[in-house]
Every structure is written in structure tokens, then in C-alpha cells.
Amino acid sequence: MHRSRFSALLIDVPRDEVPAAATFWSSALGVPAAPVPEEEQFTSLKGAFPVLVTAIQALDDGDPRFHIDIETDDLDAETNRLLTLGAVEISRWLDCRTLRAPGGHLLCVIPVHSDPETFQSLSTVWE
């Protein structure tokens, strides 16, 4: 048994376009843009969605896109569940597993990042 939940919407942009993207999305969503300490590739858009992390992620390569994060208390079990549903694992970085869903969209399976109470109350239990 493990738990998981849709926890983040990431706006992926080339690294040199982050300042303009941060200004745009901050203004569009009515929230401040702020660097995330110790995670320099992220610019937080905290408050854009109440219990969903929204951030701009700097890319060193690749086209602009959106992707979602699914946080879980069991990386192997959640990754395997999604692979069984048709996703394909394309890479790993630290504790992040990047998958491509049917249809081509990217998603990342990550360890729990939200506070324990939020995770407990909003996650789905998988047998």
C-alpha cells in the first residue's frame, strides 16, 4: 500500500527566459515570483493554486512545456503503477523519476514535498 497525489504544476522554460516568464506568470496569476532556496532551477509562484505547488523551472535544454509532479511515499510502487498504466520511464535525477505518459506529456514522480497533513488528507491510497 502506498499514497500519491498530484502536487505540482511546473512551467518549464529555457533558463535564459526565466526572468520574463516569472514576470509574466506572476502578473497573470496575481502572485509573487520568488527563487526557491537550495533549488536554483525553480522560481516559486506560491499561492497561485491553494494546495498545488506552481513554479517555473529553468531548463538547460528542451522546448517550453508544462509538466506535473506526482508526490508519493513510495517511489518504486508509484512509478510501477504508472508504468503499468502505459507510461514510459525516460530518466532519473536524484529521487525524481521522469515519465512520458501516453499522448507524450511528461510527469515526474517525486518523494513527498508537501507538509505531512496536506499529503495525508489529499493523497489517494493505492493497494
Rank of each mutant, 00 (worst) to 15 (best):
D63M: 09
T124V: 12
A20P: 05
V112P: 01
W93G: 05
W126C: 06
E71H: 06
S121A: 01
M1H: 12
L52N: 04
T124F: 09
V88K: 10
R3K: 04
L107K: 02
A21K: 08
I56G: 01
R5Y: 05
H67P: 03
R81K: 14
R5W: 04
A20K: 13
L29Q: 14
N80I: 10
E89I: 02
L107Q: 04
I56Q: 03
L75K: 04
E127C: 00
R15C: 07
A55V: 10
L85Q: 02
T84V: 07
T84P: 00
A28E: 09
A28D: 11
P14W: 05
G62P: 10
I70G: 00
D95P: 08
P14C: 05
D69R: 03
F24V: 04
S91G: 10
G104H: 06
E39C: 05
A21N: 10
A58P: 11
P111I: 04
L83R: 11
K46V: 08
G104M: 07
V51S: 14
D60M: 10
I110T: 02
L85E: 04
A28P: 13
L45A: 03
S114N: 01
A34T: 11
P64K: 13
G62F: 11
W25Q: 05
K46T: 14
M1Q: 09
E39Q: 11
V31P: 03
E127T: 00
V18Q: 08
D12T: 07
V112Y: 00
G103F: 14
E39A: 09
P19F: 08
V112F: 03
R3W: 00
H2Y: 13
A55C: 12
P116H: 06
V13K: 01
F66W: 13
F24I: 07
V125Q: 10
D61P: 09
F42Q: 09
H67C: 05
L85K: 03
F42N: 07
V109W: 00
H105Y: 02
F24M: 13
K46D: 13
E78R: 04
T54I: 15
R65I: 11
A34L: 08
V109C: 03
P14G: 06
D73K: 08
A33I: 07
A101N: 10
S4R: 01
P37L: 12
P32R: 08
